[in-house]
Design a protein around this nucleic acid. Structure first.
Lengths: 131, 131
DNA sequence: TTAAACCCTAAAGCATACTATAGAGTCAAG
DNA sequence: CTTGACTCTATAGTATGCTTTAGGGTTTAA
């Protein structure tokens, strides 16, 4: 399977596939006589794995590590795999908390402003940022 | 006031101040005879403004725009200022929602895994990512 | 006078995940 | 035989907010 075909099959860009290869997420495929990449069918499932992992928030580096475990499942434990989701969940929870803190602070100054046509000379949003 | 003094006063790095100047958040200060920057006292309040604005999630570019309004408050309306917090609030809410979507998806596959000592051959996390 | 502490500019580096560009070879159809 | 679609490599650019590096003046205190 040539790269364009694979890209279409998984809904990704050709450049992205080459980029993933450069980052070690996709192993170097065989080459045709003309130098074109020739992917095995498994490349599709591997890319689908990457897509799903991205959807749940993993970075490419983390996905690379996950894939390394996945191809040698037998030599790894559930515990090991679960620690990935554990860490990521904590990260995401922290981000959400941080954003919620920001949101609350922002809402506070937002609602304190009339939002009217008058000049901003005494705007409470600006005041809040000044003091 | 020299840059080191200012940096200490506001708890920022000297490099950061110069960077802010390069980005137009801080106007170019007067220079001493030796070429050293000589800041007016107002620089402190301006930097505090920047700090607060960052704390509520504004980017440097947005802060630059906010500062432009702030220095000519009289020529701007509350409405105008409030639209900044409005837009930012919407952005933050979207990010939170996205993260919560991710969190839910991740929690689902996380809790489905036993996390035990056995091999990951049948790990439900990996399965979830594969299918 | 000399060493520490302070200041200057310009440019590169970092992290993330691509995206774009340049320049060039290959293949299939008409 | 040429045109369009496909592929290749290598390099640079994007966005964000700094941080670091390199190389070099200035000031102050001992």
């Amino acid at each position: 399977m040539k790269i364009g075909h694979l890209a279409t099959a998984v809904g990704m860009d050709i450049q992205t596939l080459r980029y993933y290869e450069s980052q070690g997420l996709l192993s170097e495929p065989a080459r045709l006589q003309n130098g074109y990449r020739d992917y095995p069918d498994e490349a599709i499932s591997r890319l689908k794995f990457i897509k799903k992992a991205k959807l749940v928030g993993f970075t490419l580096k983390e996905i690379k590590d996950l894939l390394a475990i996945q191809v040698t499942k037998d030599e790894h434990t559930c515990q090991e795999v679960k620690s990935f989701t554990q860490v990521k969940l904590a990260e995401i929870s922290n981000k959400i908390e941080e954003l919620q803190r920001i949101k609350v602070a922002l809402e506070k100054i937002h609602t304190s402003c009339c939002g009217g046509d008058e000049t901003a000379a005494h705007c409470s949003i600006l005041s809040a940022l000044e003091n």
